[in-house]
Simulated scan of single mutants.
Amino acid sequence: MDTGDASYIKQLNRRILIEEIIKNISLSRSDLSRNTGLNKATISVQVNELINENIVIEKTEGESVSRGRKPILLEINGGAGYSVGIDIDEHSILLAFCDLKGELFHKTWVPLETIDFEEVMEQLMNHLTPAITQFNEQYKPIGLIGIGVGVHGIVSNENEIIYTPKQQWSRLHVENVLKETYNKPVYVDNNANLCVFAEQVYYEHIPDLFCITLYSGIGLGIINNHNIYRGYQGFAGEIGHMIVEPKGIPCPCGNKGCWELYASEKALKKQLNEKYPELSPQESIQQILEEGVDSEVLDYYLDYLSIGLNNIINIFNPEKIILNGAFINGHTDFINNLERKLTSKFNNYLQIRASFLGDNACALGGAAVALKNFFGVNMLNHVNYHYFKSDLLEI
């Protein structure tokens, strides 16, 4: 075996060990050996390096099963550093800060008064810079390890913003601006991709997962064999521009009758405002779902939502589909009504459910992508940590 082969094996073993430590939260060297099949000498060398790099720490916890020393447990050194996830939408930016164990410790919403790219970047950094300065002092010795950015539009495989329908941004580089300022790795992706990644990391550690975002447009994030599926140049998942009415409403994309013009929550809000002008959209939805009020508006909306969903299920045969929208999240009846409209005998899936992460998903996914790349792992699994089992996102 030559030097290159030895180096590759070492990196492979390191990745395996980090993934195992993250997944199990805390475990001993003996546990690592049993779980991975690596010998104790290899584990000892690798673990010592990770400890020296401040990535892993040792803890003595609990009572030993027999007389003698308590077991020494290994876990990720959460307080040594952190990542930042950023969700850039039309009217606001969400910043999410997660420690090295993936736990959200700070988030902030930044309202936007402009869609001008340079002004948005300036406003972003006006909030980001003091926060990074503060948290670099608290999370030592590593500090900031990277930044993940979600954009509501098409992003190429080279991190370039190709087009955003809301802001009309084209051929722009968030990555360059943030890299030059903070000198840390920056990863830019479509918001739906980051949403599905966050769902996989925190809730659904399965190899194939779909997440459909429904807020102002419709996006599809696809996890295929534990990786985000981006397509040929990174444009995959623009499912909102699937045509459901060939001679329908004109869309800014150039087509007519795109799915998101009928089945996004923006479209539903418009119809609800016309039908129930005295109520807010949330109040009207709540009344319809809780009081059983017959609503042509909701039925019309669910008809179109089910058409697109039926197409996705029949084309891809996903195991689980997560729907992420302000109306759907928290409303089981919404999902039940939708599933009743999926009548095709070809529909085959395990579960459709609402998101538990909601509008925090994109920023959390950005922070998680930065962590994954920092650790150099193939998979990031925080499911066993149970971070968001209730309303814990209000930080």
Rank of each mutant, 00 (worst) to 15 (best):
N225H: 12
Y187K: 05
N190R: 03
E394D: 13
Y187E: 03
I312Y: 08
V196E: 02
V201Q: 01
I55C: 13
I313K: 02
I132G: 06
F235C: 15
N381T: 11
R340C: 11
L338G: 09
I142A: 08
I312Q: 11
D89E: 13
F210W: 05
Q286G: 06
R29K: 15
M125K: 00
L194G: 05
L17E: 12
S390P: 11
S216G: 12
E119I: 11
E199Y: 00
A6S: 15
Y276P: 09
E245Q: 15
Q168K: 12
C211H: 00
L209A: 01
L112A: 06
S28V: 09
S216Y: 10
N136E: 03
L380Y: 10
K40P: 14
Q271P: 04
V174A: 02
P130H: 00
Y300N: 14
Y262M: 04
G366K: 05
G237V: 04
E158A: 12
R171H: 00
L338Q: 06
V174I: 08
L289M: 01
D359S: 13
N337C: 08
G257I: 02
P141T: 01
E204W: 01
W259Q: 09
L309G: 06
V45R: 14
T36A: 07
K179Y: 01
F316C: 11
R353K: 15
P111A: 02
F374G: 12
L209S: 02
E265N: 11
S390R: 12
G85S: 08
R69L: 09
Y300G: 13
Y229Q: 05
Y203A: 03
I72P: 12
F374P: 10
I72R: 14
D208H: 00
P250A: 06
I206V: 06
C258G: 06
N378D: 08
S92D: 14
K345W: 00
C362K: 10
E158S: 13
D2Y: 14
L209T: 00
L128G: 02
F117W: 06
L17W: 13
N176K: 10
Q138K: 10
F210Y: 05
S216K: 12
S170Y: 06
S7K: 15
I145A: 01
L342K: 06
V244N: 08
N193W: 02
K320Q: 09
I322P: 07
T164N: 01
G257E: 00
E180P: 01
G308E: 04
Y215M: 13
E245L: 13
A368N: 07
I249D: 07
F235Q: 15
C253M: 00
E290F: 09
I76W: 01
G221K: 03
G143W: 08
C98A: 11
I55S: 13
K270M: 10
V297D: 03
F135Y: 01
S44L: 14
D116H: 00
S390D: 12
K320R: 11
Y229G: 02
D31I: 10
C195S: 07
N310M: 10
L144A: 05
V186R: 07
K341M: 03
H91K: 15
I395N: 12
N13T: 14
D294K: 14
C253Y: 03
E58I: 07
V186S: 01
T164P: 02
L272D: 01
E238D: 13
Q123A: 11
I142C: 08
L95A: 08
P250V: 03
Q11W: 08
E339G: 11
R171I: 03
V377H: 07
M379F: 10
E20N: 15
G237I: 03
C211Q: 07
G68Y: 04
